[in-house]
Design a protein around this nucleic acid. Sequence first.
DNA 1: AGGGAGGTACGATGCAAGTCGAACCTTGTT
DNA 2: AACAAGGTTCGACTTGCATCGTACCTCCCT
Lengths: 116, 116
Amino acid sequence: MPDTEGHPARAEMDLLTVLSALADPLRYQVVTALLREPAGAERHCSSFGLPISKSTRAHHFRILREAGLIRQVDRGNSRKARLRREDIESRFPGLLDLIAQNAPADDSSAPSRANH
Amino acid sequence: MPDTEGHPARAEMDLLTVLSALADPLRYQVVTALLREPAGAERHCSSFGLPISKSTRAHHFRILREAGLIRQVDRGNSRKARLRREDIESRFPGLLDLIAQNAPADDSSAPSRANH
DNA sequence: AGGGAGGTACGATGCAAGTCGAACCTTGTT
DNA sequence: AACAAGGTTCGACTTGCATCGTACCTCCCT
């Protein structure tokens, strides 16, 4: 079962849930942005430049979290998101490559450097 | 651009559209059912045992068709659906393997033999 | 020619998902 | 202690999607 913060274990990940999570353009954009970062990189939820309100952003990150795509960790003041690369690759081999190869040419979700 | 029947060319396939198409349980079930068939197999749209009406079924097959996942060909009396394996594998390598490995244990969508 | 089988198109309906603002919590800063 | 920053939760609204019935089309068979 998911932990107290709603992260499913690797074995609990469901492809249909993952696909539904990825089927939203905003969430897909977040995943591809994380995929462009070096493995293990952490980003603020607010650093993706999503054109939505705070509450809607929390909603989308919740979907991603509960699908098992990202892990959100408390970092004192704020909370950071990290792509669960190993879990995803282990449970759904090839999925991340697939996403990476079809990432939008997008650059609105700036790299972590813009995080000053 | 898509042909007169709404089939997109291989290069036009969009991953986001494909993921949205697959994110529905019924449509996912159709794809996995086709995946269990030998390559190139054709099935009646009505042979999948979907618990929905005729018009809803047409709707779902339209989504699958316009996403590029299936090709629908007129066969005189009726119309048959075929999985576009080569196009999918070429455009989104690994996607079909991913789906096949996560197919539901389902058996309601009987094999083509049930087509008597 | 008529009827049945298989599919599509259209309009209407109901429910799920995305969206927002407001209130609240926690952490760190002043 | 007060406040700002970053997130979450809640309820309300709106849009989109799945669903259906009806009507219509095209083939095939009788």
